[in-house]
Design a protein around this nucleic acid. Structure first.
Length: 306
DNA sequence: GGTAGACCTGGACGC
DNA sequence: GCGTCCAGGTCTACC
């Protein structure tokens, strides 16, 4: 269903039930990374998207409780969109909120586990994604070996310095394209964007995508078995075991756990009385969850709050 | 295949 | 204000 005021476009997208807009938006820290932003009062998620046409638009995403119909999301833009642009927005938002993803097998397994008692009722499982997999790979590399505040800052720097502007408000920008980042230099990314040693990794990634040598969007629909897909991700500079598992979660593959320092802390307090633990203990704790390992870990009701 | 050390930034802390 | 220490995953060289 599409409605217009004089200029604005509104699209309603339905999700496979159960669906919770709140759960997917708050599934991890991505909502704090530009060009995402959350308007707390109205619980509106905004995102600046560069369309295939080159036009930059602001998406305003809100919960659309279904009533009798299935729940979903309402998408508003300030521009009147062409049919092609509407289709693109539907496709992008559908991916970003994983509207079609089916978690029923996980919910069935989770019913036997008190620590996952909330997942079905709260429709947890979906992980917020960026519009392109390139953006999610860059953001994931920026989460490694640094504090979260630095990840937020590095991402904001990238968007501010290299993103295309929203015509109505040039201070607001979309995430930079591979072409734009490939056109800069690793030295500039290091010195001006403050990416540190990650700068050459990001630059190489952008250059390979821009040259057509690496098709990151194809990862979204890859039919490779998860271990094979993981090997492909591990070939990317700056992507190690943690980052690859995080990216697999984003791709809807949950066989691996993104083990970081937070995981050690949580598992240590959950099962080892606060004693130091390593990757083996984290793996062992969730081994029985098989293909849902990542989901069980991600949405576990930890007793330690950190 | 496993391990040690380097990588880089910015915040916290002591002086 | 300055110097030092620390946290955070991945890469590379080496065994």
């Amino acid at each position: 269903m599409i409605g217009y005021n004089r200029r604005m476009s509104t699209l309603s997208l339905r999700a496979r039930p159960p669906f919770s807009f709140h759960s997917v938006v708050h599934s991890h820290g991505w909502l704090q990374l530009a060009p995402f932003a959350l308007e707390e009062e109205s619980q509106t998620l905004t995102y600046l998207l560069k369309l295939a046409s080159g036009q930059v638009i602001e998406l305003r995403l809100r919960d659309a409780p279904g009533g009798e119909a299935p729940a979903g999301v309402r998408v508003e833009t300030d521009e009147r969109l062409s049919r092609a642009a509407q289709a693109e927005v539907r496709q992008r938002v559908g991916w970003m909120l994983a509207l079609e993803q089916d978690f029923s097998p996980f919910y069935t397994a989770a019913r036997r586990e008190p620590k996952l008692a909330q997942v079905e009722a709260q429709a947890q499982g979906r992980v917020l994604r960026s519009a392109t997999f390139f953006e999610d790979v860059v953001k994931t590399i920026l989460t490694t070996n640094t504090l979260w505040a630095a990840t937020i800052r590095m991402t904001a720097n990238l968007v501010t310095q290299f993103g295309d502007s929203l015509p109505a408000d040039p201070s607001r920008r979309a995430f930079p394209t591979p072409q734009t980042l490939a056109a800069t230099t690793p030295e500039a990314l290091r010195a001006e964007t403050r990416l540190g040693y990650r700068a050459p990794y990001i630059h190489e990634l952008a250059t390979r995508v821009d040259a057509g040598e690496l098709d990151l969007e194809a990862f979204k629909t890859s039919e490779l078995p998860t271990p094979e897909l993981r090997k492909e991700l591990l070939k990317l500079k700056g992507v190690g075991p943690y980052a690859s598992a995080n990216l697999l979660m984003i791709l809807g593959r949950f066989d691996f756990i993104p083990i970081d320092s937070w995981a050690f802390k949580m598992v240590s307090h959950e099962w080892y009385d606060g004693q130091p633990v390593g990757p083996a203990e984290v793996e062992a704790a969730f081994e029985k969850w098989g293909q849902f390992k990542g989901l069980a870990y991600w949405f576990w009701d930890w007793k330690y709050s950190g």
